[in-house]
Structure formats: structure tokens, C-alpha cells
Simulated scan of single mutants.
Amino acid sequence: MFDGAVDSVKGPGKAGDLSIIFDRKKDRFLGVGLYDPDSPIRIRVLHQGSPIKIDTAFFADRIQAARKLRLPLLKKNTNGYRFIHGENDGLPALVVDVYAGVAVIKLYSPVWFPYLEELLPLIQRAAKADTVVLRLARVVNPVGGLTDGAVLAGKLTEPEVVFKEHNLQFLAHVAEGHKTGFFLDHRHNRKRVGELSEAQDVLDVFSYAGGFSVHALAGGAYRVVSLDISAPALEVARRNVALNFGADPRHEILVGDAFQELEQLARRKEDFGLVVVDPPSFAKREKEVRGALDAYRRINTLAVPLVKPGGILLAASCSSRVSNEDFFATVEKVLKRSGRGYTLLERSYHDVDHPIGFPEGAYLKAGYYRLD
């Protein structure tokens, strides 16, 4: 609930205080949430409708519901997954990712500090996690010993945890890595890329830690090029490949700006049977949407000439501010302007461990296009 929607607050409050939301004109209960006095999101709403008691049993029910939703995924040779997906699991500003028995709790608001001691055993039991690590978003200041990277339970012998995704191994730097240590949301698309990569040359643009690259190699690609501007990220990609295949000569690393490097590849007349374009979010605020759509237009315009006849372009977006309709319309306009015929093979969205509980929670989208 944003601050502009709050007409008045009775008495002072500190981060994490329970806030009863009611309609003063109709004298009617609306909901209950956690108060955040220093954030534009003034109340993190936990429940709406009829009154309810917020206690350990309430949190346990939410956590068990999240666990039940993810059970099918855990049967697929996978032990790296999102256990709690914030608002979408009814626990706003709280994310929990699990990597091979290590749970990483990430707080996007200080409202959860007062409840960590209560939540910790619930999360450990439900996630079967021996070790729990705390991560804090940049807007959240440490409280006491609750600092970014702190170990809340168990022991963390190594900051990098090896976990399994569809029988492939990856590294997650749970103490200092980006987000909670790895990007888990593209799991379904990574698996699909593996299925499409047999006997293909594959270009993984904005590859970061090489998730798509590893799956492509596992799927039987002849050659995989991991392209990213971050040399440290590409070193992690190299290590992820080595975890699964050793020093694989099929894997090449290309450090550079994606826009510039795609131009260079085109000048060299290189082409690929599969090109994955998965950039970071281009729009974190509403005013950036127009620029983001232009960036999607430019990067996919550069990618299209690199797709060989009969090859596939995977165009993805993780910008929540950019709607599915606008993103796919932008990509398909690029394809039409290229003069090449194309066939939409499929569109994909969130994997099961990233449920969508409200319209704004739908951020991930990807389109698979076969080009003539």
C-alpha cells in the first residue's frame, strides 16, 4: 500500500509494526500489513478481507502453501529453487531461495527484521535447510548483527554452493553474489534451450553466469559462445561449464558490450542456429519504459542477422514495467522489418517456483521464433 493511499496514521510506528488498514468513511476493516515508515510502500499488506490473527500459525500456513506449490519441481533432479516469492506467496518484500539445502533469505524491506527469529525455524523445516544465510537489498540497512551475508543458522563452509538444475550443476555465491547468488527464474527456458541445441552453434547474449550456455552444451551443441560485458561473470560461466563438462573446447567466452559485439559478429558474417537474447532489466521505473522498448528493438535488430536460415531467436525480457504485449509487439516488429519470414514457436513465462499473485508480479516473458 503506497504512502499516497494512506489518509492518516494513528500514533507513531516503527518498521515491522502490525498495521490495521480500514476505510474511515465506511468504518470497515480492509486488511492488515507490516508498517514501513521510511518507504513509499508504506504498508506491506499481508491479508485483505475479513480480520485475521497474524501469528506464528499464520506465517506457517503461508510457508507450507509455498512449499506445496513447489513440490512437483523438486522431483525433476533440481535442488536450486525459489521457495518464497515475496508478494506472490503472500509474504511481501521477503524472498527465500534454496540451493542444495542452503536457504538464502533476502529482505527487500526492514519490516521483516522483528520476525526473523520466528520465521527461521519455519523456513528451515519446510525447506529442509541446514544452513540459512541473510541477504539485504541495498535499501535495507543492517540491524545489529543482521548484516548482508550473515549466517543465521548452521554453518557455511564455502560461500559458493554447488546446486543441481535438471541434473546439471551450477555455482551460487550465496554470501556475496548478485540477488541471492543465481538467477533461478529462467530455469524452464534454460531447459528448453538445451532441447533445441543439438548439433547447433549457439550464441548466448548477456550470458552472465552461463546458465543457457551450460544447458546448450548438455543438449549437444557443436559450439557455444557466452557473451557478456562482465569478465568476472564469464569466469563463473567458465567454471559452471567445467563443473559439468571439464575444459570443454566447444565453449567460447566473449567479453564486451553486447550491442557492439553483435555488430562485430555480423561483420565477420558469423551465424548461429540458436541465438539467446536475455538482457538485464531495461526499465526499473515507469519513465524508463520507452527507452527500454527502444533497447529491445536495437538489440534484437542486431541479433536477427546472426540467426542462420531455419535457426531460432529466443528473445526474453525481465522488465516488469514492460508489458507482455508491448515486448512481443516490439520483437515481432523487428522481425517484420528484417524482411525475413518467421514462425512463433512458443511463448513462455514464469516457472512454477515464481508464481504470479498479482498483475504487476508478471515480469518474465520469452518468445521463441524460427526465422526463414
Rank of each mutant, 00 (worst) to 15 (best):
G246M: 07
K14C: 08
R340I: 03
R192Q: 15
K333H: 15
P72M: 10
A93K: 11
G219D: 01
D326T: 12
N141R: 13
V277D: 09
L364M: 10
A258N: 03
G31Y: 05
G220E: 06
W112G: 11
K284V: 09
V202G: 05
D148A: 11
A199K: 12
V322P: 04
F2D: 13
R138M: 14
V174S: 01
T330Y: 06
V236L: 12
A15M: 05
R24N: 12
K336H: 15
L262Q: 03
Y99M: 10
A199M: 06
G86L: 04
D248T: 05
L107Y: 06
I105D: 09
D257K: 11
V307W: 06
D228I: 02
A150R: 12
L364K: 02
I52N: 04
A283N: 07
I312T: 04
E360H: 10
A362I: 06
E118P: 05
K269W: 06
V275C: 01
E252Y: 04
G291T: 08
T343V: 15
D97C: 10
L293N: 08
D17A: 14
E165Y: 07
K365I: 00
I43K: 03
V151G: 12
V224I: 13
K284N: 15
D271L: 12
E176A: 13
F182I: 08
P355V: 01
Y368K: 04
D185H: 04
N141W: 10
V143N: 12
K336E: 15
G194M: 01
P159D: 13
L254T: 04
Y35R: 12
V45P: 11
R285T: 12
A15V: 01
D3S: 15
Y363G: 11
D271E: 14
L364A: 14
Q64C: 02
N240L: 02
A231I: 04
G341H: 05
H85K: 02
L274R: 07
L34N: 07
G181P: 07
A221K: 02
R347D: 05
H178Q: 15
P40W: 14
F212T: 07
G16V: 07
R70H: 09
L30G: 11
V161K: 06
A216N: 02
F29H: 12
E332K: 13
L94A: 10
G149T: 06
Y342W: 13
G16E: 09
L364E: 05
A66K: 01
R187T: 07
R298N: 04
F58H: 09
H166S: 12
F2C: 11
R268Q: 14
A295W: 11
R192G: 10
G291N: 03
L69H: 13
I312S: 08
E198T: 14
A150N: 08
A199F: 02
L203C: 02
G13R: 00
G90I: 08
L344C: 01
S213Y: 04
R24V: 08
P92C: 08
F22A: 14
K75P: 02
R285P: 01
K365W: 04
K26L: 14
F83S: 00
S207H: 06
A292M: 03
Y115R: 14
R370Q: 13
Y369M: 06
F113H: 09
L217C: 08
K128S: 15
L91Q: 09
K25D: 11
E270R: 14
V224F: 10
R67S: 14
A65L: 10
L136M: 02
V275H: 00
H350I: 02
L302M: 08
K287E: 14
S207F: 00
G4F: 13
